[in-house]
Design a protein around this nucleic acid. Structure first.
Lengths: 336, 336
DNA sequence: ATGAAAGCGCTAACAT
DNA sequence: ATGTTAGCGCTTTCAT
């Protein structure tokens, strides 16, 4: 592999000139720049990432801690990851993938100077991993909303607002008895914050509007979905609308409703909280509140880059909650 | 951050001794080793990855090119990735994630010496990216089976054998008229090799057994699944068994069958080719041939590590095809 | 069994 | 506008 020295020799300049041509950190005359760029092309020169990291204390790599258990929201996770990787590339960064349970990995990667910043997905309300991140010299961004961000930046969909938005949509249509089919109990037990926040917003708005309401967890299996539906129908036989916040169980919730003779939307309305393509991928295009995983991933990267750009600054961390939007489709209508 | 020099000073030894304690590349006396290890712990020392890469020409990072489009086999992809990351960690490697469409990324990462080896998922029969990989000094492993591996190592499930296995299972049960509901036309058009290989094995074995058979592509939407089922039922009204190789469409294939009044397995048997958990996650536990994504990811890493271990060696590349296994569950039975 | 020292390839002062 | 050079932190040969 050619080195910067080779390039310099071929171009007839010093190594620092080559370096500055590459970084643009000082003015270079047109002719020099041209010769250098030619030499680079001719030699197929690529700067050695390690050498660069050593000399500049920058790796151009972002660490991403993603939950790689295949059990939950696989498609959502994928969207987050895609958003992060794409945005990272737009900032000339690569992405190092860490499994999220591996707390030690964070320290290894950060203290070993492998990454410039860290992004952590799937944050729980009271997440032990946050303590680790706080102690690092690299900035970190959380996807999700812990109880105490400890000075870290956070980004997420405003699930609380999403819960309220779903109820408002149903209220506007005239519904008075609504139920939420939510995340698996396991996820709730983990204090995964989005699940709790959505449920909270749902209940709050339903109370405020004077609705009769109810929420049940729902495990991500056909049987779990059936159980959840049945639990709702038993506790609230005259329910007219459902909010479903569980993209895996969603299809089975719908088939169960069909089997129980409740047609959507004639006998029961359904609002899904899930990625848009999941809502559109069902038999009936569902009214839904999008979980914009791709966008959230992008924002996470921007926030990380912002912190990197202003190193000394003690600009306080910020929490960015993306405003949910509801798209009315064919699964909601006025109750009869 | 503490450096190796700090450790050496605190331990009262030279830097090289510290280095050798860390690498184990030469014998160290018990007492020295102890003092060094203490110093490392006390200082919270971590070797600087860049410095290490520069001095040793090793990064301890594996590059993984994964298709991050959210459209196909999301859960399968996730399993591959998980397998790769887990195995990589077992070999003390981290994983750098590349999006698969970014051919330039491969060269950037490889020539910039960011990775020791590359693993490429979702290989197509005639994949342009292979040419790039062949030109690199780092070893590369393909997940999938191109027409011409050009000397690269490959690993995949033996989809051809899987197609044959499915047919043999059905033949043994007494079925004589079978159909394959396969991958989306789009995937077939991309010459994605697994889709073609499975279809080939299916047809070959069906011919060999003298069965009446048929195969249709199937787009991964509810409507697509319905169309595929209807196409089969029209062309072969008396079909008694289906092989489904499309994990996304699978649930909709089943609901469509139900709607058309064909009960599984009484009126029609179904063999699914998909990850085990997908087969088990349906209403009825399906007879299935597992796509062992996790295992394949692991093997890919092992192969990469093997190449790294013996650098000079010109051991010819190998192709490892994992033998498919069929697990009989409740969706197949003898035809009536 | 241990140490001294020469790089690895690059960046960023410091010069001019 | 360009060149010189001192590190960055580690590995590894060469000595002892």
């Amino acid at each position: 592999m050619a080195t910067i020295g080779d390039v310099a020799r071929v171009a007839g300049v010093s190594t620092s000139t080559v370096s500055y041509v590459l970084s643009g950190k000082r003015p270079i005359s047109g002719s020099t720049r041209e010769r250098v760029e030619r030499a680079i092309r001719d030699l197929g020169y690529r700067p050695h990432a390690g050498a660069r990291a050593l000399a500049s204390a920058r790796t151009n790599v972002l660490g991403l801690m993603a939950p790689l258990r295949a059990d939950v929201n696989v498609s959502v996770i994928m969207q987050f990851v895609t958003g992060v990787v794409t945005a990272a590339r737009n900032h000339d960064r690569d992405v190092l993938l860490l499994t999220s349970d591996e707390v030690a990995g964070t320290e290894r990667v950060a203290n070993g100077s492998m990454v410039d910043a860290l992004i952590m997905m799937d944050v729980e309300s009271d997440d032990a991993r946050i303590d680790v991140l706080v102690g690092l010299r690299q900035p970190a961004v959380l996807i999700g909303l812990p109880q105490d961000p400890q000075g870290l930046s956070c980004v997420d969909l405003d699930f609380d607002a999403a819960g309220r938005l779903a109820v408002r949509h149903l209220t506007a249509l005239g519904h008075r008895r609504v139920a939420l089919i939510g995340s698996p109990q396991l996820v709730l037990d983990r204090h995964t914050s989005y699940a709790i926040r959505l449920r909270h917003g749902f209940a709050e708005q339903a109370d405020a509007a004077g609705l009769t309401h109810l929420s049940v967890p729902c495990s991500s299996t056909p049987a779990g979905a059936a159980d959840a539906v049945d639990a709702v129908l038993e506790a609230m036989p005259d329910v007219t609308a459902l909010v479903v916040h569980n993209e895996v169980a969603l299809p089975w919730v719908l088939t169960t409703l069909a089997e129980r003779g409740r047609r959507v939307p004639q006998e029961i309305s359904v609002v899904a909280v899930c990625p848009r393509d999941v809502a559109l991928g069902q038999r009936l295009p569902l009214t839904s509140i999008d979980i914009p995983g791709y966008a959230i991933g992008q924002v996470a990267v921007e926030m990380a880059m912002a912190r990197l750009a202003e190193p000394g600054t003690d600009r306080p961390a910020e929490t960015r909650l993306l405003t949910p939007t509801l798209e009315a489709r064919e699964s909601t209508t006025a109750p009869t």
